[in-house]
Each structure stands twice: as C-alpha cells, then as structure tokens.
Amino acid sequence: MLNSIFAMFSYSFLIRAVIVGILVSLCASLLGVSLVLKRFSMIGDGLSHVGFGALAIAGALNLAPLAVAIPVVIIATFFLLKLKETNKDGDSMVAIISTSSLAIGITVVSFSTGMTTDINNYMFGSILSLSKGDVILSIPLTIAVIVLFILFYNRIFSITFDERFAKATGQNVEILNTLIAVLTAVTIVLGMRLMGALLISALIIFPALTSMKLFKSFLSVTISSAVVSVLSVLIGMVLSYNFNTPTGAGIVLVNLAIYIIFGIIRFFKA
C-alpha cells in the first residue's frame, strides 16, 4: 500500500490533482457549513450542472473553459439564491434550471466532439483532466476563497445564524450573501474538473452534515468539516488510484463512510 502511494506521487499530474483536491475540498467544506445551515445545499448541485453547460459551450467554441464557466456560474448563483428567497417553489425551479443546463451541455458536446470521454470527465470527474493551466488558476483562486472565508468568518456566522438580526442591526447582509455566492461559484467550477458535475455537491454537503453529528459549536463544526473533507479527498484519491476507479466517486464514498462512522459514534455517545 505504502509503495503504491509513493508510486502515485511520482506522477506529476497526480501531485497536481492532490494539491487542487485539497484546496478545493477545503473551500467546499468551509462554505458548506454555511450553505447547509442556510438550507441552500442543493444550490451546489444546481450550479454544477450550470457549470457543466458552460464548460461544454466553452469547449465547443474553443474558449478557455474556466474563464467562461466562472462568470456564468457566478451569475447563476445570484439568480438561484434570489429564487430560493423569493419563490416558494425554489427547489423545483432549481431542478428545472439544472436539468436544462445539463441537457444543453450534453447536446453541445455531442454536436462538437461526439459523446467521447469528455462527457465522462465532466460528469464524473477525472484527475487526468486537470491541465497545468487549471492548476495555475486553481491555486490562487482557492487560496483567495479560504482567506476571504477566514476574514469574514464572524460575519458569515452572524448571517447564517440569524439573518434578520444581522440586517436589523445594520450589518451589510447583501454584500455578505454576495460574497458567499461568489466564493461558492468559484469553488464549484474549480471542483467540477476533479469531482465531476454529478458529485461536486457532495464535497459541499457531506463534511458539514458529518461534523454536525458530533460537534455543537460553529467553530468546531467548521474545523471538523475542513479536516473531514481533506482526509476524504486524500483517502479517496489513494483508493481510486489503487483500484483504478473514478476519483470523484471514490471521494464521495469515503465521505459516506466517515458520515456513517460519525453517526455510529453519536449513537453510542447518546
């Protein structure tokens, strides 16, 4: 096992994948705590499908994929968050938008390149799809997400816990919500390459839900989510390398395992 881990790190593309994986999973887990508690968890799923559509169109037009997908997904985030707030049928509208984007994406890809491995990579993620350019762009962006999250951590807690109070006491709730939306959008687009459109939302939802099983303060849940998330990405990557299975699915399965373990510990503690 150890030998194969060493062997794994002798490939430069795998090292790239591990670096991006750790950074993206950190971002996703930090934002995930707030998104899950605000009941916005499915937004991640919706956005990843929009991201898929955007990536497909960018590919067909020969444009830089991330340069197209990031702004498109940021716009979609605003739209979906507003929809959730104002519309009772927010959930079904999110589903309509996400399935439509998916359909557009698949159609565009099949027109331009045919149903090739591209689709597979987009849908289920692939560490091979991470180019050097992706990595160069991913590292500063994910670090920016993490730094901004830490800087605004106290305020993010405040609006997550009780948005009405925050608003009434003169905090700029709009700007903070916008910040969360932009950070989420960036994280999802970057993470999609690795996890795939279908699985990226797991990276946002699982660590927060897992941590909430055992921890009772916002800080402890946030820290635990970060640890759980990075661990599951590392374990998931090693396992999927060893068993030659898709990376994204491997990471989700490790997340599921940790979720179940935390559930069992909680059961015996109670």
């Binding site: 508690l37 106290n154 009780d162 109070f165 006491t169 003169g170 303060s217 916002f218």
Partner: peptide, 30 residues
Amino acid sequence: SEIGYLPQNPEIDSSFPASVWEVVLSGTIA
C-alpha cells in the same frame, strides 16, 4: 447599529451548531 433587536420567535433550528458564547459575541459585530 446601536439599536438592539430581539426578533419574534427567531426561526433557529435546534440542530444549528452554535455555542451560547458564539451567539452573544455575534451581537457585538454591528
């Protein structure tokens, strides 16, 4: 920012992970 507000039955989920310290401290942000 100097007006304190206690909302009517704030809809805070009982599973929300927040310690009393975190909640009280958040009042000083304003």
